[in-house]
């Protein structure tokens, strides 16, 4: 059972990681917590679901569609809810509150558009099972694991090696300086938000596939977990988000397996309260200095 539970924990954890990656990107560049990330993730899942159900497209096409929609939604949020705040000198809490507003709006919109019931992908992807020794693993689980690790490496490489990646990192260091250096920071911020939201969209489809349920409130619970991972791994730290997600997933599953399942939902926040008191910069964060 131990190995099977470890696999369960890793799969759950990698979905958390995927969600946390989006948080961390925005945190790194804009230094804000995007409380609406979970809801963008949820919208992505619905877009993917509807593409598969009504247009009968391939699952990877659906993922691309979800990514594009979520990215556009992210850009819209940046224009409506975040950019106006940057122009004014407002409290650092303002973007947090503003994104909470976006989150509530999107969740309620989804409830009205899609209804409260959970819906499932019509594919039989989840039913494809494999037996590897003592472990039974589904194809979706493998895809999720592969994709989250893949995305993490691509993201890291892209940020450190490409021109745009370097521009993002410069903006993350200091917006004014980046401006002086001739970087169009507004464009970079746009790009980051789009990228983070797009990742959220893909994560939405993957999570919807693996748990076979897409419903409007999934954004809130997943978003809160992603937030916990963000703090756990260290704000604005990609490796932190990745490993933090896996740690949280495994911790939750093991709480169920060897402890009491009724305390499962307290694990995430119990962990972050602990981490905030002991090591506020997160497990993998540095106290000062560069992000990413």
């Amino acid at each position: 059972m131990f190995w099977q539970q470890l696999v369960n924990g890793l799969t759950l954890g990698s979905t958390y990681s995927l969600v946390a990656l989006g948080y961390t990107l925005i945190m790194g560049v804009l230094n804000i917590i995007n409380m609406a990330h979970g809801e963008i993730f949820m919208i992505g899942a619905f877009v993917g679901l509807y593409l598969v159900t009504y247009f009968e497209v391939n699952i990877f096409v659906a993922m691309a569609g979800a990514m594009v929609t979520s990215a556009l939604l992210g850009c819209l949020m940046e224009t409506v809810a975040l950019r106006p705040l940057r122009r004014k000198a407002v409290s650092h809490l303002a973007p947090l509150i503003s994104t909470i507003g976006v989150a509530i709006f999107l969740e309620s919109l989804a409830l009205n558009l899609f209804g409260p019931q959970s819906q499932a992908f019509p594919t039989e992807l989840a039913a494809v099972q494999m037996q590897l020794g003592p472990i039974r693993i589904s194809l979706v689980q493998i895809i999720i694991l592969g994709m989250s690790f893949g995305l993490m490496f691509v993201l890291r490489f892209w940020l450190s090696k490409t021109r745009v990646g370097k521009a993002i990192r410069t903006t993350a260091e200091n917006i004014e300086t980046a401006n002086l250096l001739g970087i169009n920071t507004n464009k970079i911020i746009f790009l980051t938000v789009a990228l983070a939201s797009g990742l959220g969209g893909i994560a939405g489809v993957l999570v919807g596939l693996s748990f076979n349920a897409v419903e409007p409130t999934m954004g809130l619970s997943m978003g809160l977990k992603g937030l916990a991972v963000l703090i756990l791994g260290g704000m604005g730290n990609i490796t932190g988000a990745m490993l933090g997600g896996l740690i949280l997933g495994i911790a939750e599953v093991f709480t169920v397996a060897y402890g009491a399942s009724s305390y499962r939902d307290a694990v995430a926040f119990g962990m972050i309260i602990l981490i905030l008191f002991i090591r506020p910069q997160g497990l993998f964060g540095k106290r000062q200095g560069g992000r990413f």
Binding site: L96, A228, L276, P280
Partner: peptide, 28 residues
């Protein structure tokens, strides 16, 4: 005591977490 060493966003998240933990404990 420990939480107020944290500022701004961190405090908001820590208290948000606190609320969730209280809810789970009340459930149990």
């Amino acid at each position: 005591f420990p939480a107020l060493r944290l500022t701004g966003i961190y405090l908001a998240i820590a208290t948000l977490g606190f609320g969730e933990v209280v809810r789970v404990i009340v459930l149990n």
